[in-house]
Design a protein around this nucleic acid. Sequence first.
DNA 1: GCAGAGTGCTTGCAATTGCAAACGCGAAGG
DNA 2: CCTTCGCGTTTGCAATTGCAAGCACTCTGC
Lengths: 163, 163
Amino acid sequence: MALPKVGSIGEYIREQRQQAKISLRQLATAAGVSNPYLSQIERGLRKPSAEILNQIAKGLHISSQALYVQAGLIEDREPPSDVITAIRADPLLSGRQRQVLIDIYESFRKEKRAEDEQTSQNAHLRHDSESDDEPLPDEYLAALEPFAASTGNGTANQETKEG
Amino acid sequence: MALPKVGSIGEYIREQRQQAKISLRQLATAAGVSNPYLSQIERGLRKPSAEILNQIAKGLHISSQALYVQAGLIEDREPPSDVITAIRADPLLSGRQRQVLIDIYESFRKEKRAEDEQTSQNAHLRHDSESDDEPLPDEYLAALEPFAASTGNGTANQETKEG
DNA sequence: GCAGAGTGCTTGCAATTGCAAACGCGAAGG
DNA sequence: CCTTCGCGTTTGCAATTGCAAGCACTCTGC
């Protein structure tokens, strides 16, 4: 086991560095790593840790993610236009919260589809939360019943406002 | 330096593992690392390389990015509002559904943050939100109550009804 | 009480990371 | 010619990663 495809990340770093017209030593200093080590990284002789990789990304003023993707450490990133994907990728949610959000979203999708089937053409009016002509349909509430456990989390009532 | 902010990543991993109801050894096997090493990682005694981190993410079936963000290895300039953006961009949701989902998401983030501050005291996360300290309208709170103490139950399935 | 299987944790040890120091090379400048 | 300054690279070496083996503990069943 020597240097499988680690070269790609090294090549990518060197590419970016040369494109930025900075020397190896400069980048090493900017990234806070030693010059010899950066040299070895660029030639694929060393497999840098995530921390070093992040510092190099900073020194190069490029996205850390770009580097991780190049290193094969992040699966090809899907566009954030997918709600499910975004929820799954959010590190600030607990596993339970993720699952609940996903379930709600899917329930909404079904609900919306049902509405579209009925109206079939008219679906472009803005609903305000206060002047809501229809309350929350129990359709998705029913779908969420399996989560029921109730801890009595009651809080004050605030005026609704849109973002 | 003994324990930088690596502890947070370890805690996060342990949290996710326990939420997934799998043992340390199971995750270690799934991630392709040794059990003792994973134990040390979770307790913040070791600083895992990016490769190991990625394998653990796979073993946990969570996004690699989530781990990197937790480890502080990705710039926080990645807005956690990816979910918000995705919701706003989703053409398959009605305006009201969008607003409800966004409110629920933000509520979850507040809840999660509170939990994190209890267990650990490293929560210097900035976050931009217009409705920061303002609770949900009780219209949505009613919908959220069932989630308050739910466990990892993901069987909210309802057949489509568009005939 | 004791074997068996489960959990997580501690202990040496090979392999690797990451660095300080030194090396060879080319271009200014004395 | 010889020094100085920059470049990238090579060379030992301390510190760390990551693992195989074993430890301590808790259940369950005999």
